[in-house]
Design a protein around this nucleic acid. Sequence first.
DNA 1: AAAGATGCCAACCGCAGAGTT
DNA 2: CAACTCTGCGGTTGGCATCTT
Length: 273
Amino acid sequence: MGRKPCCDKMGLKKGPWTAEEDEILVNYINKNGGHGSWRSLPNLAGLLRCGKSCRLRWTNYLRPDIKRGSFTLEDEKLIIQLHGILGNRWAAIASQLPGRTDNEIKNLWNTHLKKRLICMGLDPQTHQPLASPHNPNDKAHASSSTSTRHMAQWESARLEAEARLSREPHLYNNNNKTDSDYFLRIWNSDLGESFRDVHKLESSIKCESQSATTDLASLTPASIVKEEFLWGVKKIVSDSSSSSSELHHDSCDTSLQLLLDFPMNNDMSFLEL
DNA sequence: AAAGATGCCAACCGCAGAGTT
DNA sequence: CAACTCTGCGGTTGGCATCTT
């Protein structure tokens, strides 16, 4: 059904890259001010590799901004925290660690961090204690604060947006008002701050009926969370364009509440650890 | 010292989504 | 709007390095 792998072509080399191949690839990209089409790059550069292999070699090893060397404790801590929020979305996690690649982080996770969590008695997927199924503490986790989980969803969406923009830096500068663009601006605006304040006042927010019916086993993809969030952001933006500042403030509050109220089934209770 | 086990990581594979025709 | 192409992502693997017995 699917397309044949691009490396199936006869005569294309696979396996480890040689220094000569690296040099050819780097020289080509430097000379042309970018890679252009990865598919046509091997022919143009004179490499007996498929485009995919070239892209991987460049993004994971040859890129000039790659940071080499071991991860610091802070890095590892951050990766664990981000994994708790984002799951196995290595590219999104990597976007928060400049110079580190998704592959590198994935390897670090699979070889070190995962085991470390297990040793600490935590499930590396859920970041929750590997306790017995009848552990009363688990129940406490299940009914964790909704506002805490909303906070995690905001954070998740923010990281996704940043990951996207880090891949497409031109979006910062042009006039395309993308969803991610809006998101980041709102996140850094008074509204974002308001939300963070709301989080601090989490005891005042009661959504117990929703969290009680949450299916903890089914994790909602963060993209869905973002969709819901963006709907709220778009409402804020459209409201603000036709309102006085006071009304704007009200609409922000309203939209903020909408964001807080949207149905969710992500289990983010690990944030309370 | 040698053989087997384990760790590590670069690279490959296949899928999915976005863009194009 | 279906078919196709391109690219990015996450899972997996192969092989070298290191450790253990």
